[in-house]
Design a protein around this nucleic acid. Structure first.
Lengths: 338, 338
DNA sequence: TTGTACGCGTTATCAA
DNA sequence: TTGATAACGCGTACAA
């Protein structure tokens, strides 16, 4: 294990001051070209690597962006990170990645880690079972800029980037209605999540706009995962016949996939007996039988937009707080039956 | 934007020295319990967050581990990261994530970034088109420990964690042989990648051990992606009949999935006309028609083992260099036809 | 163009 | 148990 070479070592090696080394490194105009070359040469020969830690300490900027993601397994977040990563790297920043595992304590710890590391800004997608947004309101008072992505809150003075859940949910519900479905049920996500609320509202508004009644019994309690959709449909099939819809709008793809499995197991033909649509364009939706009609949640773009907005906040003190909504295109496959 | 509170501020607020604050923070035994409580209280009231940057500068340790991954889209690496993350978090480290995008320049930049940030160690899965391992040999001479994961080199004095490619490839080839397949082809990955070489060797050795000839024409040039498998099989089907095998061992699942698509498009029944097996247990393998027989590359475990080994190297100067090989269990589904 | 002095926020060391 | 001082590696401000 070699000892680390410092700027001073480089300076000593060629008989200049540490400042000259620093100037060579940072392309200062106040340095002779010849001297600069000598320094650069010596750096290379000695295997010098600038100490970003020390640099950060004096500059009070780390050029590092912190990310908090709630889960890793789903294909969505890795894709978002790819988008973030693209922007961040091209802007000379680094990425410090943390993980909340859908757990409040871990999320707090993650935020604390990022702050201790003095990241210049934070991108966060919150955990799901948020009881109140009081905690997140405080992020506004943090000493560094924050941008929410995918899962967000409005009206708390923090910028966010997400899909236009309400509008898109409306769109896919409308798609079913336009194809003559009338009795349309809903597979709901967690009540406390803003996006779940919005998607439900979109579903309800579509029914409303087309003069269809909103039937509470057709709205099934569920969650965001396969097992949630699976259980909800199992329960539905064991319940009263009159509560069984002709079409189902699911809060997301995993829930739809779980539901589809339950339907398949019970010999119910999709879409002939019951149609079903999802939300998020999970990688499996295309392969499952029958292929799932869904909305393409543009993960990569969400990452890109969120990262850009955050860097704007970092760079420009007066960058306006904004709720950025991205449209999710409809992907028509087989489960809608058209 | 509030000004950041320092330890000095906390000290001043209650009339102690900065050292006392530091001691309270680090659970030093040389501090009075009452004083400690006063300090902790003041920290809370002032909203103090320790500056990890400054701490790292003096301690010469960042408690940060750097990761270089070659790609993000595939489901494999996110899962590895989950494993790494688990270990790293529970050991009081942080994760600095970088991305090489299968590109040599970006990989070098990533390593440079990590070194500049003075990470305590590096986990790296190398890019694919490596011409020589000369570059990676130099990692051994780095001033910090390195551990390869998934894609690695042997005999260059650096620890690594990966699946036992040769043995597992042997195992899945043997599976085909034992089910009476005789004319078995191979969909090869890149020549320069160690794991591709190993998998090919496993395939060849299985043929050999069972007294089957190794026919060069049955070994198809290919790559690691869907389109590579797709093209290779298209070419095969347009070529001479005698070169068409009864079974195909693919270097990995994406290649197998691409190949399967080509077979489907040409009306070739799998497994009745041609059987095919993959390697890596891609999330899609289960859903594709027919479901893919493959080997379950234990991504999470690879991440865990690699992170543990790295931390061992960091903590213990004389931790032995080791090539850790993990077994990939066989997952029998439909494409092998048994 | 180059160098010197100082400070960034923290901790190790030694003295009180 | 507590505090003063120096040091970590670098950049800003100023002087030469």
């Amino acid at each position: 294990m070699k000892k680390k070479v410092t700027g001073k070592d480089v300076a000593k090696a060629i008989g200049v001051s540490a400042m000259t080394v620093s100037r060579a490194l940072n392309n200062s105009p106040h340095i002779d070209e010849t001297t600069k070359k000598r320094v650069l040469n010596a750096m290379y020969n000695l295997g010098y690597t600038p100490n970003h830690i020390a640099r950060s300490l004096v500059l009070k900027r780390t050029y590092t962006i912190g990310v908090v993601i709630p889960e890793f397994t789903h294909s969505f977040f890795p894709e978002v990170i790819r988008g973030i990563e693209e922007v961040v790297n091209n802007s000379g920043y680094r990425l410090l990645l943390t993980h909340s595992a859908e757990n409040h304590k871990q999320e707090q710890a993650a935020l604390s880690t990022l702050r201790q590391n003095r990241v210049d800004g934070i991108l966060i997608s919150t955990i799901q079972n948020v009881k109140s947004n009081k905690y997140y309101r405080e992020l506004r008072n943090l000493d560094i800029p924050v941008v929410f992505f995918d899962r967000y809150f409005r009206n708390i003075g923090v910028s966010s980037v997400g899909v236009n859940d309400r509008k898109c949910s409306y769109k896919i519900t409308e798609h079913l209605i336009q194809h003559k479905y009338r009795k349309i049920g809903y597979l709901a996500g967690h009540k406390n999540i803003y996006i779940a609320q919005q998607r439900k509202k979109g579903y309800q508004q579509a029914l409303n706009d087309y003069g269809l009644p909103i039937v509470e019994n057709l709205i099934l309690d569920s969650g965001f995962h396969e097992e949630d959709g699976y259980k909800a449909v199992k329960k539905l099939l064991n319940g009263k016949k009159k509560n069984i819809p002709r079409g189902i709008v699911a809060v997301n793809d995993p829930a739809a996939i779980g539901a589809l499995q339950a339907l398949n197991e019970n010999g119910i033909e999709v879409p002939d007996d019951i149609a079903i649509v999802g939300f998020s364009n999970d990688i499996r939706g295309e392969l499952i039988q029958p292929p799932l009609t869904t909305l393409d949640q543009p993960a990569y773009e969400i990452g890109v937009r969120a990262a850009k907005k955050l860097i704007a906040h970092i760079t420009n003190e007066s960058e306006p707080v904004e709720q950025i909504l991205i449209d999710a295109p409809l992907i028509i496959r087989k489960t809608c039956g058209c």
